[in-house]
Each structure stands twice: as C-alpha cells, then as structure tokens.
Simulated scan of single mutants.
Amino acid sequence: MTSDGSKSKGEGHRQRLRDRFLAHGADGLTDSDMLELLLTMGTPRRDCKEPARELLARFNNSLSRVLDASQQELEQVKGVGSKNAFAIHFVQAVARRYLRERLIGKEYLRSSREVGDYLLHAMRGLSRETLVAILLDASYGILALEEIATGTLTAASVHPRELVKTAMAHNAAAVILAHNHPSGNTNPSEQDRRLTRHLYLALALCEIQLLDHCVVGADQRPYSFADHGLMEEIRQHCRPILSGTG
C-alpha cells in the first residue's frame, strides 16, 4: 500500500496477472508472467518483472529449462535470490508429485503418450542418468514407479536381479522402463539397446513382460522403443534364446 492507502503500481500489476489467471487459466499468461508470479511467492514486496525476463533470457526462453535449473544456476541471475529459487523448485516438486500420483492412480494405461508426459516433466532435468521402472498389473494398471539405478547405465552396471526383485515385490505382470540422457539427445545408443535386450530376457524368464523402454531428453518427447519397432526386434532376437533353440 502507498501512504494514502491505495495499492502500489507493482501490487496492482500482480493482481491483474492473478485475475487474468483466474479468468483464463495458464493460457491467459505468458511464460514471463508465470515466472513473475512464482518469484513474488518468494519475495512478495519486490517487483519481479525484470528478474522473470532475465531468467527466460538466460535459459533460452524456455520455461521448462528455468524450472529444471539448479539452485546455483538460478541464483546467478540478477535479482533472483535463495527465496525466489526455493519458490521455483517447490512448484516444480509439487508438479512432479502431482503427475506421479495422477499416473499411478489410473486404472489402466491408454497410451505411451501418457507415460511420456510424466517422464518428460519428471526426468528431463536430472543431471545423472537414472533408470526407472513403471510397474503394471495384468490389465496394465499402474502399480508403482521405482528408481532402479543411477549413473552410467549399461548391461554391466544395471543388475537384472534388482529390476526383477522390484517387479516381483509389486506382483507386476509388465514393466515399462525409462531413462534420461542428460545431453538432451533422445536417440538410443547401442548400449541402450543391449541393456534393453538384457533386461527383457531377465524379465521374460520370470514371465514378466517388458512393454517399452523410453529415453528422455530435454524438451522433445521421449523416444519410445515400442513406437519405433525396437521392442519387436528385441522380441524376435530373444525368442530363440527363451525357447532353448538359440
């Protein structure tokens, strides 16, 4: 408030942004507007318009890259302090938990796109390679999401017994695997293909299906082995081994 009791110019501007969001949802705000409102949660008495613009400029005009940035990276931007960075990280954490719980709560999985939406938000900002398993029942209802391994992911470094143990603990009938490429490139490497064959065999010997393996990058949609025909290639490759004729 000003000395005469009226709202300051900054507060009036923020209220207009809030009103616009209430009337039109996210479509009524630009990325800069959204960041400005997020920053004001940390420092409600400061004008956050310029820091919001600086953040977008620093991270290639990408809201998702701002949300995925580390505390140190955020605080390197002029006008962004620890309280502002906390507000951004907290909102990101809430969004990830929301998407995770919404995915697990589904009675059945309708498409790889649903999985991709969750994985893109949850994994694209990770600095280390991480392998997660989405565990499904016989009707493809999602039972749980579990982290299996972190670090360099190869057939030698990822132990099949950990994946099998996790799947059996949840009484899973099927599994979808996903891992991230911190480089941002979603094309699967030859290591990724070998790892997928390795884990496919381990699960198949326990009568558990491996339905897909998704590779998560930066802003593009995850690469799906199933959508690109690679899971069928793996099934054909492993069939003689599983039947005892390979």
Rank of each mutant, 00 (worst) to 15 (best):
T166L: 10
T166G: 09
T166I: 11
A167D: 05
M168G: 02
A169Y: 02
N171K: 15
N171D: 14
N171Q: 14
A172G: 04
A173D: 12
A173L: 00
V175E: 07
V175N: 11
V175S: 13
I176R: 06
I176V: 15
L177M: 07
L177Y: 06
A178M: 04
A178N: 01
A178H: 01
H179M: 06
H179R: 11
H179N: 12
H179I: 02
N180W: 04
S183V: 08
S183T: 15
G184E: 12
G184N: 12
N185A: 10
N185D: 12
N185L: 10
T186A: 14
N187F: 12
N187E: 15
N187Q: 14
N187P: 00
N187W: 10
N187R: 14
P188S: 09
S189Y: 11
S189T: 15
Q191H: 10
Q191N: 13
Q191Y: 08
Q191S: 11
D192H: 09
R193M: 14
R193Y: 12
R193S: 12
R194W: 09
R194Q: 15
L195W: 05
T196E: 11
T196I: 06
T196G: 05
T196F: 02
T196L: 10
R197C: 08
R197L: 11
H198G: 02
L199R: 03
Y200Q: 11
Y200S: 15
Y200D: 08
L201C: 06
L201P: 02
L203Y: 03
A204N: 00
L205F: 11
C206F: 08
C206V: 05
E207Q: 15
E207K: 15
E207G: 04
I208Q: 01
I208V: 14
L210T: 04
H213F: 13
H213Y: 08
H213P: 01
V216G: 03
G217Q: 06
G217V: 01
A218V: 04
A218E: 12
A218D: 13
A218L: 12
D219V: 10
D219N: 12
D219H: 07
Q220G: 03
Q220N: 09
Q220H: 05
R221K: 07
P222I: 06
P222W: 07
P222Q: 08
Y223R: 06
Y223F: 15
Y223V: 05
S224Y: 05
S224I: 00
F225P: 01
F225Y: 11
A226T: 00
A226I: 01
A226P: 00
D227M: 01
D227T: 00
D227L: 04
H228Q: 10
H228W: 03
G229A: 04
G229Y: 08
G229L: 01
L230G: 00
M231I: 08
E232P: 03
E232A: 11
E233S: 14
I234W: 02
I234C: 04
I234Y: 02
R235L: 05
R235P: 02
R235E: 15
Q236V: 09
H237R: 07
H237N: 11
H237C: 08
H237T: 13
C238F: 02
R239N: 13
R239Y: 12
R239G: 07
